[in-house]
Nucleic acid binder design. Structure first.
Length: 276
DNA sequence: AGGCAGGCTTTTA
DNA sequence: TAAAAGCCTGCC
């Protein structure tokens, strides 16, 4: 089908944003996008048109939600004011096209536990290995094989040897225990939806290997709480460099997380050294 | 009590 | 060789 939209939607910006680790750019420039047991191949045609290898019906009931198409990002982005916050205006303008995906919560949680103290290529590497070893095998519409991200039970079912092959290092035990807690029902991800942000952060930090940063990433990327504001080494630098007098949270509430994402991607892609 | 140093696996640049 | 979308433990 062909999707037409006037709102922000850049596949490249999203793929390079650091919020998801399994989008793949294909030879012809289209992107392969996995979500649970389904996959999408989407190609940007220009002029706000996109080609998707799914039916209108599947788009409406699945991919539209995943891509968060009901939210008007251009309108939110306009909160960045050129005069009062020139850096943010520049960052949001440069990174126009980013959206906060509605990813699978379990995949987001595990992915961001893995992400700690590592760069993005290394994170992608571990996640891909986990999918190959514990996920289910599928073929996309072009006949290429791909592996789903394992659910809690599948991940928990991995042998120590198989999990150690995924190069998790000291995070091995974190992943092991989190998968076990979610799998047996001791930690209920669905229950998180009922909690306010503060309580939700605390609950997530009760998991071994989850601190404030990973918990914040889970809120923003796994639970789509757009006000969650993960502070990592990059954002720390930005806050020091660009906001010595404090970050103006009031100006961006309740979308601080989206603006964090604009800053993060912008700073990483301009001042960063590990561009892809 | 709460803030800080040191250690942790492995990959990347 | 240092740094990487950090967290845990022990110490003061």
């Amino acid at each position: 089908m062909i999707l037409k939209t006037k709102d922000d939607l850049s596949l490249k910006k999203i793929a390079d944003s650091g919020q998801c680790f399994r989008w793949k750019k294909l030879e012809d420039g289209a992107y392969f996008v996995p979500y649970k047991e389904r996959s999408l191949i989407i190609n940007e045609l220009g002029s706000g048109e996109y080609e998707l290898d799914c039916s209108e019906d599947e788009y409406k009931h699945l991919w539209s939600d995943y891509l968060d198409m009901d939210v008007n990002y251009a309108k939110i982005r306009a909160l960045a004011d050129k005069k009062s916050d020139p850096f943010m205006y520049e960052a949001a303008s440069a990174q126009r096209g980013i959206r906060i995906l509605r990813q699978d919560p379990f995949e987001a949680l595990i992915s961001f536990i893995i992400s700690q103290n590592r760069n993005i290529p290394a994170i992608k590497n571990s996640i891909e290995l986990i999918c190959e070893r514990a996920g289910k095998t599928y073929k996309d519409s072009r006949g290429n094989v791909w592996y789903s991200f394992p659910d809690a039970s599948e991940l928990n079912g991995m042998s120590d040897d198989a999990l150690k092959e995924c190069r998790l290092g000291y995070r091995f035990e974190y992943i092991r225990r989190t998968a076990a807690a979610v799998s047996c029902g001791e930690f209920d991800l669905r229950e998180l939806r009922l909690l306010d942000d503060e309580t939700c952060l605390a609950k997530l930090q009760s998991l071994h290997g989850v601190g404030l940063k990973v918990a914040s990433c889970m809120l923003l990327y796994g639970l789509h709480r757009m006000d969650a504001f993960p502070v990592d080494v990059w954002v720390k630098r930005i806050l020091t460099d660009k906001y010595p007098d404090g970050f103006p949270f009031e100006a961006y509430t309740p979308y601080c997380g989206l603006f964090q994402q604009y800053m993060f991607a912008y700073y990483r892609n301009t001042s960063g050294t590990d561009k892809e």
